[in-house]
Amino acid sequence: MPPVAIRAALLLAWALLSSAPALAAAPSFPVQVVAAIPHDPDAFTQGLLFHGGALYESTGLYGQSSLRRLDPATGRVLSSRALAKPYFGEGLALAGDHLYQLTWREGRVFVSRLSDLAPVRELPLATEGWGACTLGHDLVVSDGSDKLFFYAPETMALRRTVSVTDAGEPVVRLNELESIGGMVWANVWGDTRIAVIDPASGRVLAWVDCAALAAGVTKTSPDDVLNGIACDPATGRIWVTGKHWPKIFEIKVPGLPFGHPGGTRRQP
């Protein structure tokens, strides 16, 4: 192509890009509290899930990390297993009848029996571990960046990755994850909002605003942030909590048009 033609093509492309509408930021929906139950304020919550009438929790910090089963009516710890001191517990997911507990920087995934929390095996993790959930046949993992990693849970073989964006900008510090209504809900470290993410495109379709919950929590450290999402798809109940928070909140999100338990995916 002659230089003049190249310049004309570049100018046309720039004009088209300049006139294209910018991607709109995802809308935000405030939560409403349905109920609140006590939560161990010593628990540095890294992962939370619901299954079979119980809540399961992964807690962090070196020398304090654990895997727990909780009573969702009272918050009482029904059973617990401590991690060895060199490990910092992180995100938690359920695949089949096994719990998958990430470690932060130790490159390991601990697989435990759901029935009694007994360890079964260890698997490798190529990145830092922050959050985890299962979506279909994938184990979805965050590492604190803007990426979601989709693994085969049996082997931790990487299947694909997706970059998470809102209004075209990367959303970083992705933390605890939960799959709800075909979407991935993600805590963002230090943010009082939860991102509702389309797992195919990585686009944030909505924000679940939990600022009202955080405002009522007395923090003992800057690290005591919103973290922990659990969902019962059979009933639609959703719970959230935070690191060292004294309560677990059951919430609902009026007006949220997608990402509901058992709901169908619908683009805004």
Results as ranks from 00 to 15, higher is better:
169 E>H: 12
30 P>F: 11
63 G>A: 04
88 F>P: 01
243 K>V: 02
228 G>P: 00
230 A>R: 09
147 K>C: 10
39 H>S: 14
256 L>S: 07
175 N>H: 03
137 H>N: 08
161 T>P: 00
101 Q>V: 05
181 G>V: 09
110 F>P: 03
95 A>C: 14
265 R>Q: 11
100 Y>M: 02
149 F>K: 12
74 T>D: 02
51 H>A: 14
3 P>A: 09
92 L>R: 06
186 A>R: 07
59 T>H: 05
9 A>K: 12
110 F>A: 10
98 H>L: 12
114 L>I: 15
103 T>K: 08
223 D>I: 14
25 A>I: 14
100 Y>S: 03
89 G>E: 01
170 P>N: 13
23 L>K: 12
131 G>A: 10
174 L>D: 01
53 G>L: 09
195 A>M: 03
262 G>N: 02
205 L>G: 10
43 A>I: 08
4 V>Y: 14
113 R>P: 07
241 T>I: 07
263 G>M: 05
260 H>Q: 12
19 S>L: 12
172 V>C: 11
49 L>I: 10
48 L>G: 05
187 N>Y: 00
125 L>D: 00
19 S>G: 02
169 E>S: 10
143 D>K: 07
267 Q>F: 15
165 T>L: 03
196 V>T: 11
172 V>T: 15
203 R>D: 07
189 W>G: 02
78 L>G: 01
171 V>P: 00
12 L>G: 07
246 P>L: 12
218 T>K: 15
89 G>F: 04
85 K>M: 11
75 G>F: 07
72 P>Q: 08
224 D>G: 02
88 F>E: 05
242 G>Q: 09
29 F>A: 03
156 M>C: 01
90 E>G: 03
108 R>S: 09
105 R>K: 14
25 A>F: 15
212 A>K: 12
